[in-house]
Design a protein around this nucleic acid. Sequence first.
DNA 1: ATTTCATGTAAACGGCGTTTACATCAGTCG
DNA 2: CGACTGATGTAAACGCCGTTTACATGAAAT
Lengths: 221, 221
Amino acid sequence: MKWGKGSKEPDNEPRGYHHGNLKEALVRAALALIAEKGPAGFTFADAARWAGVSPAAPYRHYRDREALLADVARRGFELFAAVLAKAWDEGRPDLMRAFDRLGKSYLDFAKNQPAYYSAMFEAGVPLDADPQLREASESAFAVLRAAAEKLVLLMPAKGRPPALMVALHVWSMTHGIASLFGRGDAARRALPMPAEELLEASVLIYLRGLGLTAGTPSGGS
Amino acid sequence: MKWGKGSKEPDNEPRGYHHGNLKEALVRAALALIAEKGPAGFTFADAARWAGVSPAAPYRHYRDREALLADVARRGFELFAAVLAKAWDEGRPDLMRAFDRLGKSYLDFAKNQPAYYSAMFEAGVPLDADPQLREASESAFAVLRAAAEKLVLLMPAKGRPPALMVALHVWSMTHGIASLFGRGDAARRALPMPAEELLEASVLIYLRGLGLTAGTPSGGS
DNA sequence: ATTTCATGTAAACGGCGTTTACATCAGTCG
DNA sequence: CGACTGATGTAAACGCCGTTTACATGAAAT
C-alpha cells in the first residue's frame, strides 16, 4: 500500500525497510505541520506520511499523538531556555540593556518559532505529562527569575519586592503580548505599534513603577 | 438508529421529530463539552448526541464545526463585554476602585467561564470568521479602552501616554495572567499567590510607573 | 387540503487514532 | 558462519468523527 504523500515529501532519499531516524523526522514533521496549520490541525498520520512511513510506525516511538506533542513542547522549552539565557547573558553589559534583550528575545521566539511556541503554550499539553517537560519549562522560567533577582537587587532592601513576583509579572506581560498580538498573521487583532515596542514600553513603565528607572516613559527605542 | 447518548443526557424531555430549539441546545452542549475536555476535545457529533439529535442535524444550524465554535466565541465576547462594563460602572465610585474591579472581573470571567474563555482566546477561531464576532470582541475591548481613557485623564496633559497603549498593556497583563495561571486546574504552573493578587500588584506597579498612584506597592487588597 | 419550507434522519465517504498480528533487519552469541 | 532476539516498520482492521446527499416529517401559509 502507498500512503499518498499528501502535503509535501522531504523524504527524498529512498530508504530500506527501516527509516533509521524516524523519531527526529517525526519531530521535524510535527514542527512543519504545526507551523502550517496550528497545533489542532496537526495530525499523527500526516506526520507519518511526511516521514514516508506507514501510519502505525510512529507508535514505535511515541505512545500516542499527545506524547509527540509533549516531546515537541519539551524541546521547545529547552531551546527557549537556551535562547533566553543567551539573551540575558548574565546581565551584561548592564541589567537594563540585558533585560530589554531578554524581552525582545521572548517575542522573537514566539514570532520565529510559532510551532514550538504553540506546542509549549497553546496546544493544551499538560505540563505534568512528562517530568522532563516540566523540568524544561522550569529551566526556561528560571532564566527570567534569575534576571528578576538581579534587578530587584538594584532597589533598596527596604520595600524590595519579591523577585518571583517580578518575574511572574514580566512573564505575564510578555506572554500576554505574544499570545494576543505575537504573530503578524491575520486572524488576530491589529496593533497601532509593533509588539516589541508595546512590550518595551510596558516593561519600562512597570520598572519605573518599581522605582528602577527614572526617565519619563515615552515612545520606543 | 440510536446515537448512543454517550456522555450525559440533559435532553430528558422526549420530543417529536423536531427539536424546537436545537441551536441553543448545541451552544449549551458546546459549552459543557469544552468546559469538560477543552476546545480541542469538543466534537460536533458529541454535541449532537448531547442534544439528542442525529449527527447531521447540527448542519442545519451551523455551516460546520468551526462555525459553532465561532458562535460560542461571539456569545462569549458579548457576555464578557457586559460583565466588564458592569464592573467598570463608568468609573464609579472612583477610577482606581473601578479599575481594580475591572481587572478582577476579567480574571473571574476566565475562571468561572472557562468554556467561553477558551472559545474566545484559545480555540484558534479567526476573529474575522464572522463580522459579528469581530464586533463583539471590539466591544469588549472598548470597555477596557474607555477605562484607560478616563485613567490617563488623571495625568497632566504633558507626557500623557496614549490611552490605547495603556489599554493594550493592561489587557496583555491580564490575559497573560489568566492564560498562564488563570484556572486553578492541574496541568498549569503553581503560584505562590492567588492570580488576583498577582494581577492587582502588577497593575498597581504599572499605574505607579505612569505616575497615577503614590503609595508603595506592597501586597494586600 | 395542498403546498412549501425549515428542520431532522439515514446512509454513505474518506480520514484519523489506535491496536494487533506479522515482516524485516541489525546485532549478538554459539 | 548461522540461529536467536529485539527493535523497527507494515498491513489490516476497528470505532469515531466531519461532512454530504437524498429522503422524511411536520408546522405554517395559501
